[in-house]
Each structure stands twice: as C-alpha cells, then as structure tokens.
Amino acid sequence: MWAETAKKLGAAAFWLLIWQALALAVHNSIALAGPWETVLALFSLLPTGDFWLAVGGSALRIIGGFLLGSALGVLLAALAYRFRPLRTLLAPLMGALKAVPVASFVILALISLGSSMLALLVTFTVSLPILYLATLEGLGAADGKLLEMAAMFRMGLGSRIRGIYLPALVPGLRSALALASGMAWKSGIAAEVIGQTAGTLGNELYRAKIYLETDKVLAVTLTAVALAWLTGKLVLLIFDLWGGGDRD
C-alpha cells in the first residue's frame, strides 16, 4: 500500500515539476502562473470571508443540483423499468438532456430564470440522465433466473430489491455517481462563470480573469477540483456504507 501511495505521489510530483518548468520557461505569470504562485494565491484567499462564502454558495447549488438530479434519475428509472410506456416517453427527453450542450442550458436558464439558481439547474440536468441511464441499465441487467426464482417463491418487493436488483445496480450506480459528481462541479462552475452568479467560485474565476490574475484563476480552479474530489469521495463513502450495511 505504501509503495502504491509513493508511486502516486511520485507521479503528482512529476507533473508539478513539469508545470513549474513550463512556468519558468514562459516567464510570464499572466500567461501561466507556476505552482508556487498558485499556492501563494490560494493562501491569500483562505483567510477571506468572501472566498468561504463563494465556496459555500457553489457547494450548496452544485451539490444540491447533483443530489436532486441523482435522486430523480434513480426514481424515474425505477418507474420506467416498471412501466414500459413511461420508458418510451422519457427516452427522447433523456437523450436530449444528455446531448444538449451545457452552454445552451445555461443561456436558456439564464434568460428565463436568472443567475441565482443557474448552477443548481444545470447540475440537476447534467446528473439526471447519467443516473437515469445507469439505473435503468442496472435494473435491466438483473438476473432473469433469479427473478423467476423470486416469482416462484413470491418474494416481497423489499426482498427482491435487496437480494436481486441492488446487487445488479450497485456497480453501475457507483460509477455513475462518481461520474455525475465530477460532471456536476465542471458544469456548475461553468454555469456560474457564464451567469456571473454573485457569491460563487465561478464568479471568483470570472473576476480573476478580468483582472488577469492567473494565479488566482488557478487557485480557484484548484479549490473546485478539491471540492469535486471531496464530493465524489463522500458520495461513494455514503453509498458503500449504505450498500454494504443491513446484513445484521
């Protein structure tokens, strides 16, 4: 395990060195700030209230949209699995949600709803089809022979879900949650930048860009990456605890 950690740290150190070397070669902190300047910019942001308000504002909207979209995606998929006409009805909508560019969503939502809930709406629409499709596929992959057994034994719905559907769902759902949580942060921050939503990391990025503070752009980016990583880890931790529990 230690060897694995050392390898990962070594790889990260390698890319940091490349970044530093490029920054030295470019020798222009507006074009490319180096890792050291970025860390200094981050440390200058950390004590400020505005920064933490921006972190909270973005996290609330992005994680809120991700959770709502994920929950509705799973619920709709369960209903669509049970009622085939609903699946047919939802197919074009999910296809559209998956294919329409995030920027189009952002602009449409900006026109009709304004900027304050923009990130929430965008992360919701990004997460929804990912979880919907993964859940539908997982349910469809449930073992037909086990379902036949369940019918013969007249297994209750709860037992079928726990014993047959959940084991079929878990691998795909886990990947989908990891993917959707990362996509939520990417699209959510993009929406905040385009919508210039006050009190968000996206807006901090936008302001840093106006003043050509590349080190601050990278510091805010680093923060968003860290938050996305943390969200993904937390979601999977909760999912694993929930999925692996109740075996009394």
Binding site: K145, L146, F153, R154, M155, G163, I164
Partner: peptide
C-alpha cells in the same frame, strides 16, 4: 436445476429473503 441463490448473502439470509 441451477442453485439460483442470492450470491452476496449467507445461507440464512437466502432463506429469509426468499421465503419471507
């Protein structure tokens, strides 16, 4: 003809879930 057991569960849970 096949066992058709619930793989992640032990024997008692297989009985519980299948037979209620």
């Amino acid at each position: 003809q096949e066992d058709r057991l619930l793989e992640g569960f032990d024997a008692a849970d297989n009985l519980r879930l299948a037979l209620g």
